[in-house]
Design a protein around this nucleic acid. Structure first.
Length: 352
DNA sequence: AGCGTAACGGTTGAG
DNA sequence: CACTCAACCGTTACG
């Protein structure tokens, strides 16, 4: 089951959460599922924070902010005022809307650019020229990288503050600097979850058609901080772990039709960087305000037949019906039986 | 004994 | 296309 470096199969992750919801202690879950207690702890902690059982996005790199266009402007500023400070350049990039507050290079980055790329202003490197031309000839990086605008727009039209079109964000209220958010950054997650819960945003979202390419599906891509998430997608990546690592059939049958988890869509796994719950507009989080309400890295536990509206609902339902298992979509086994046997896993009657 | 978490060695994927 | 880098993973060890 354990594949170093790879996430646990979704089935196991789900079972961990299920068992925890049933009141089974983490140490017992750890023993039963033969998963380290650290892993159980981590998965449960994440679930409690984000409502997602899914692993984060693996691999990739964050989009560069020092695009050729930015470098060009920096060069211009430097040429115009050789004594200009990096921080002044930074301010000007913002003032001139070359960048917004979320993708403006750091002062150190600007310094590095000045040192490495613009060090010799009289003789711009061939590298710079070629890069410049190539990028200008096609699309500026910003077009792609800047952000995953649902409808990509040019940087020039980027609203001050980096808010996205079609996304309600209190202007001027982006208080959180756009760092590269950790997958564990769960700021506003509660808000997101509340939103989800209230709207049932995920529930019954079975209208989506699997698209092999997320970025095409939502006109955004990972490179642009995409947080697109096809909620009901059966993304290969959500299944792959199970396939690649020989997830026992028993696990799959127990959960495979149960959870269509869009774990970490390979085409768009950076949803995680958009934060779990991304797409559920949460004021103050630029990087969460992307895509459609159901388009995010959705820590989506989309459940068979829409039984479970959202991870949050899932969570609440289970907790609320702890004593009436028969009504819990989670606890209820697929054949309708409800007992202490979850997905074939024997659960002790008492955990204490 | 149970739990939270940092360290570790590993995988992944964009650049 | 090989490489780098920075993200993530789960296990292990420690407090």
């Amino acid at each position: 089951m354990f594949v170093n470096g790879r996430p646990l199969p979704n089935a196991i992750r789900l079972r961990i959460v299920e068992l925890a919801q049933l009141g089974i202690r983490p140490c017992d879950i750890s023993r039963q599922l033969r998963v380290s207690h650290g892993c159980v702890s981590k998965i449960l902690a994440r679930y409690n924070e984000t409502g997602s059982i899914l692993p984060g996005a693996i691999g990739g790199s964050k989009p560069r902010v020092t695009t050729p266009n930015v470098v060009k402007h920096i060069r211009d500023y430097k040429q115009g005022d050789p004594g200009i400070f990096a921080w002044e350049i930074r301010d000007r990039l913002l003032a001139d809307n070359v960048c917004d507050k979320y993708n403006v290079p750091s002062v150190s980055s600007i310094s590095r650019i000045l040192r490495n790329k613009i060090g010799n202003l009289s003789q711009p490197s061939q590298y710079e020229n070629s890069k410049q031309q190539s990028s200008q000839a096609s699309l500026p990086y910003n077009h792609i990288y800047q952000y995953p605008y649902p409808n990509p727009i040019s940087p020039g039209s980027t609203k001050v503050g980096g808010h996205h079109p079609g996304v309600h964000m209190p202007s001027g209220h982006v208080s959180i600097a756009r760092s590269w958010p950790s997958a564990h950054s769960v700021n506003n997650i509660l808000g997101i979850r509340t939103f989800m819960e209230q709207t049932g945003a995920i529930a019954g979202a079975d209208t989506s058609v699997y698209s092999p390419k997320m970025e095409e599906w939502a006109s955004v891509n990972r490179s642009g901080f995409s947080t697109t998430q096809n909620i009901n997608c059966i993304d290969k990546s959500a299944v792959d772990p199970d396939i690649k690592y020989s997830q026992p059939a028993s696990s799959l049958t127990s959960v495979g039709s149960f959870v269509q988890a869009c774990a970490y869509p390979s085409a768009n796994q950076y949803g995680v960087y958009g934060g779990p719950g991304t797409g559920y507009v949460t004021p103050g989080h630029h990087w969460q305000a992307q895509g459609s309400p159901i388009a995010h890295h959705g820590p989506s536990v989309t459940v068979h037949g829409g039984d479970i509206a959202s991870p949050m609902t899932f969570k609440h339902q289970v907790r609320e019906v702890m004593n009436r298992k028969q009504s819990s979509p989670i606890i209820k086994s697929q054949d309708g039986h409800t007992n202490n046997n979850i997905h074939g896993l024997s659960i002790p009657a008492s955990s204490s």
